[in-house]
Write a protein that binds this DNA or RNA. Structure first.
Length: 667
RNA sequence: GCCGGCUUAGCUCAGCUGGUAGAGCACCUGAUUUGUAAUCAGGGGGUCACAGGUUCGAGUCCUGUAGCCGGCACCA
């Protein structure tokens, strides 16, 4: 059948303009008809909202949009194409390597390979060079649709067991598309650029890693290669620079530089030692919580960090949580466990006395030290540890109070987050995984009620959230606040759970108006999460330049010469003795009496990100003043010592964050 | 826990294909007494993570253990 015999179709462009083409026209031909510039810039098309290869025929009337490098979708498309080029390069260089999947991800792409010998970092430059060569070959892309069974047989015949398995997962009857780049081909949904040269070469392979097939640790481990790819070299360089800058915020690096915390192999992996500077931050956070929780009517308790196993059997942590607990200690023939959680202890506190409906909600709080036997590979600085202290509390309330209490908890979070300027997070509403019900307590009606209460609370509080299947605790749904570390790992920084199980296992009841016993609801909440993770996050959030109320050293007195040492010490003492209403102690101030020149002293203070430097020489000594310098380098000039004390006191007490951060690195 | 890499002075790092350890900063001492990001000079400091092995000889090669780093899995 000749093209002339085909009925025409109408292609409508985004600006509403309609053009007529022969049926089977390709998007590339349409772009060419619009103009040579567009034809050249075109990467792929969007046909009726579906991404479409430029070389793929269009069979009916359609709305068409040409996607070029400038469009937002371009990056993802480039990265997806790049994954193919990576797979092709690897198969050329390492015959016998099987391909599996290779998606575009944030900032880049990866491809998972099945290969006996793992890749090493030395392989990356070689693979990268081959990728550049493949791109330069400018191989044309071809798309074919195959019957499912033919594709399965084909990939099996090639020894590509994983690809065959992937196709087997495609519903029967659905079409299977294959893409060729020159002689190399892969199963793929597409779309792809018309030829490899269109991808560009603004990319870099970044890391290799093991990754489980289908994300399941029961499956074989594949070899993953990560890369980053951008529109052009400039974007790539900007990204690499951004990574470098991020690394400077890494809490592990700053923690060392500012002497916040340390670890010792003699103590054990994941068991942090808080140094005096880090402890200041932790104490101030605790003090903040003390004050806020007091306003909210919480009651403080203290409970042991170790217990007989009976308690955890009762709470059902054994066996649900056993793998995450340290092995038991044999004490006089009985098993004792270090506690991984505090809930059972608080339940016993609640259960120790009878409760009337009038006294609910009862809010029990504790700074609780816990130990969890976290997988060794997951440990990371203070972000993920095995021994930590939680800002934990449990709210025992009536069913009709649960929603309101949950809302209050959300508002408490908001106060903390506002205070610390934390904006880059999202809330995750975690629900059970319906395919792994064995992970959860089997009480469907209770689950439904609990989820309904949280949903209503979230709706009422107005905070947006995303739902996540499979993240719930075994005893109930939860709402976590998710943040990212500077290296891009996502963590829950705060957590809130609704527990319907505890009331049964611990027989937690209250006496109602009717004189009968009724079950309570339990809300677990840890708005500051663990102090370890929260401090790690704040360190990265502030890049070590903590606001005055959190800064380990709030001001350093810098005498210009030995002649001013006596006055400098007097200034330090006056600051030290100034009463501070809203902090754990007085002002935290020190003096640099070293024999260095003042330039050096300023540099040292600057590198330690101390908010205020108080330069004092003979002039200041004579006038009772201090010359105030901010860590940003800004010089406020001399002011009366009393004026400065008033300023820093008010800043510390109000917990405002006004001191300039001064992130400038030494020239 | 799994895959890969790494571990040299308090910190950051050199140390070629094996021939018995270096720098800068920090620290100590002395000199200097300084006005907003590094004064000069001298000195002390390392069983090269630990345990085995190969070798005439190991920081360099091999094995194991621990810790760390990058991912995966798991999770506050």
């Amino acid at each position: 059948m000749s093209a002339a015999a085909q009925p025409d179709i109408t292609i409508t462009l985004p600006d509403g303009k309609a053009m007529t083409f022969a049926r089977g026209v390709t998007a590339g031909e349409v772009a060419a008809a619009i103009g040579p510039g567009l034809a050249k810039a075109a990467l792929v098309a969007e046909v009726d909202g579906v991404q479409w290869d430029l070389f793929r025929p269009i069979e009916h009337d359609a709305k068409l949009r040409i996607i070029t490098r400038k469009d937002t979708e371009a990056l993802e498309l480039i990265r997806h194409d790049m994954a193919h080029v990576l797979a092709m390069a690897v198969q050329e260089l390492y015959p016998g390597t099987q391909v599996t999947i290779g998606p575009a991800i944030e900032d880049g792409f990866y491809y998972d390979f099945a290969r006996e010998t793992p890749f090493t970092p030395d392989d990356l430059p070689r693979i990268e060079a081959r990728m550049r060569e493949i791109i330069a070959r400018d191989l044309p892309t071809r798309r074919e649709v195959w019957p499912r069974d033919k594709a399965i047989a084909h990939f099996k015949g090639m020894g590509e067991a994983y690809k065959a398995e992937l196709i087997e997962g495609i519903p029967a009857g659905e079409e299977v598309s294959l893409y060729w780049h020159g002689d190399w081909h892969d199963l793929c949904r597409g779309p792809h650029f018309a030829s490899t040269a269109k991808i560009g070469d603004a990319f870099k392979l970044t890391k290799i890693a093991g990754a489980y097939w289908r994300g399941d640790s029961n499956n074989a481990q594949l070899q993953r290669i990560y890369g980053t790819a951008w529109r052009d070299k400039k974007e790539l360089d900007a990204y690499l620079l951004r990574l470098e800058e991020q690394e400077k915020r890494d809490h592990r690096r700053i923690g060392k530089e500012l002497e916040l915390f340390t670890f010792s192999p003699d103590v054990g992996a994941g068991l942090p030692l808080w140094l005096p500077n880090g402890m200041v931050i932790r104490q101030e956070l605790e003090f903040l919580a003390v004050q806020e929780e007091r306003k909210e009517g919480y009651k403080r308790v203290a409970t042991p960090q170790i217990t007989k196993e009976a308690l955890f059997y009762r709470s059902r942590h054994l066996p649900y949580y056993k793998d995450d607990m340290y092995a038991p200690l044999d004490i006089d023939g009985e098993n004792y466990y270090l506690r991984p959680m505090n809930c059972p202890f608080h339940h016993l506190v609640y259960g120790a006395t009878r409760h009337s409906y009038r006294e609910l909600p009862l809010r029990i709080t504790e700074y609780a030290q816990d130990y969890r036997y976290e997988a060794s590979g997951g440990l990371s600085g203070l972000m993920r540890v095995r021994g930590f202290c939680m800002n934990d509390a449990h709210i025992y309330c009536r069913h009709d109070q649960a929603k309101d209490e949950f809302v209050r908890v959300m508002h408490l979070h908001a106060r903390y987050y506002d205070l610390m300027g934390i904006k880059d997070y999202y809330m995750r509403f975690s629900l059970p995984d319906l395919n792994k019900l064995e992970k959860y307590v089997d009480q469907p009606d209770k689950w439904l009620t609990a989820m309904e209460i949280i949903k209503e609370a979230m709706k009422e509080s107005g905070y947006p959230y995303v739902e996540a299947r499979g993240e719930a605790a075994f005893y109930g749904p939860k709402v976590d606040f998710m943040i990212k570390s500077v290296i891009g790992t996502e963590y829950a920084i705060s957590t809130n759970q609704l527990d319907f199980l505890a009331t049964q296992t611990f027989n937690l009841t209250y006496i109602g108006e009717d004189g009968a016993e009724h079950p309570v609801y339990v809300i677990h909440r840890a708005p500051l999460g663990t102090h370890e993770r929260f401090t790690a996050f704040l360190t990265e959030h502030y890049a070590g330049a903590f606001p005055v109320w959190l800064a380990p050293v709030q001001a350093r007195v810098v005498p210009i010469s030995e002649k001013a040492n006596a006055y400098a010490e007097e200034v330090r003492r006056k600051l030290f003795e100034a009463p501070v209403v809203n902090g754990t102690a007085g002002l935290r101030v020190d003096v640099d009496l070293s024999a260095e020149r003042m330039q050096k002293k300023i540099r040292d203070a600057q590198l330690q990100k101390i908010p205020y430097m108080l330069v004092v020489g003979e002039r200041e000594a004579a006038e009772g003043k201090v010359a105030v310098r901010l860590r940003s380098g800004k010089d406020l000039g001399p002011m009366a010592l009393e004026t400065f004390i008033a300023r820093i006191k008010s800043e510390a007490e109000s917990r405002t964050d006004v001191a300039e951060r001064g992130l400038r690195i030494a020239p």
